[in-house]
Amino acid sequence: MSAVSDSIVTESRSGLSNGTAGDFFALLKPRVMSLVVFTTLVGMMTAPHVNPVIGFTALLAIAVGAGASGCLNMWYDADIDAVMRRTAKRPIPAGRITKDEALGFGMTLSVGSVVTLGLVTNWVAAGLLAFTIFFYVVIYSMWLKRATAQNIVIGGAAGAFPPMVGYAAMTGSFSLETVVLFSIIFLWTPPHFWALALVKSDDYRRAGIPMLPVVAGDDATRLQIILYTLVLVPVGLLPAFMGFAGLPYALVSGVTGAMMLVLAWRVYRRREGDAARKAAYGLFGFSILYLFLLYAVLLAELIVGHDRVAALGTAAARLVGAA
């Protein structure tokens, strides 16, 4: 049975907000926001032409839109956040901000970011940003998260849209390249979160969230992790095969992809005790580095060119060899 209770503070003593500016900023999930800025920038840089001022403003609007959806997610999930160790200190369950304040703040930023993006760039990008916020808040947070073990598989789309929004902001359309960038994040999400869910399944069980390990068991989750990783690694190589990434990207994607497979295999094999826990944490931690490296190398290539990144890599390898 779920331990979720309705003990969230609804009003402060004075009627004034009890939160600091930092508490409101924390509602935007700054770490997720920084990842969104990063992936959006990569999507944006695949466009043929980027006006720096318009690009910066679009990036800001998309980041605020992502923050707004994080805020609305915290508003809706305050009850389950309160019973999970990882999230109990967030501003709403900790009693520093009321649910109504978070709702008002999140809605204001959602509308503000979508309208700003529409006015500054185009309404295709603004529509996609609005859809992303809707998808994360309504489809994922309100519906899937508490209803199905496939919650993060489908919900992962919300986190995968930003490169497409970034490209759309610069061009007013979509591209095959950004669909590939979308697919990488989409396929990365399940092994990443299920590795965490394997070690935090008690937390999810207590909160009544039907994460895969809670519903289908740890072994079924381990199988799903390795299956998704097997699909993710070749898709991670697609940018190089399609020609919008060069040799440095292909090398980094190949090596880190092989590491992902090794770590996923370790999670599959080590099923008991501390070794299983370490394997799951290992995959969870490395998966963050994997996605970061893929996007960082791609960004470097898009900014300075494939050839220069390759030349830098060769020079660095020579230096290492000489040392």
């Binding site: 003593r13 004034l16 907000s17 009890n18 939160g19 500016a21």
Partner: peptide, 19 residues
């Protein structure tokens, strides 16, 4: 009315400055 504590005044100032 309700008299704000020093802590509440400090938090309100932080919000006002950020805004």
């Amino acid at each position: 009315g309700v008299v704000l504590s020093d802590e509440e005044v400090r938090k309100r100032r932080s919000r006002s400055v950020a805004l």
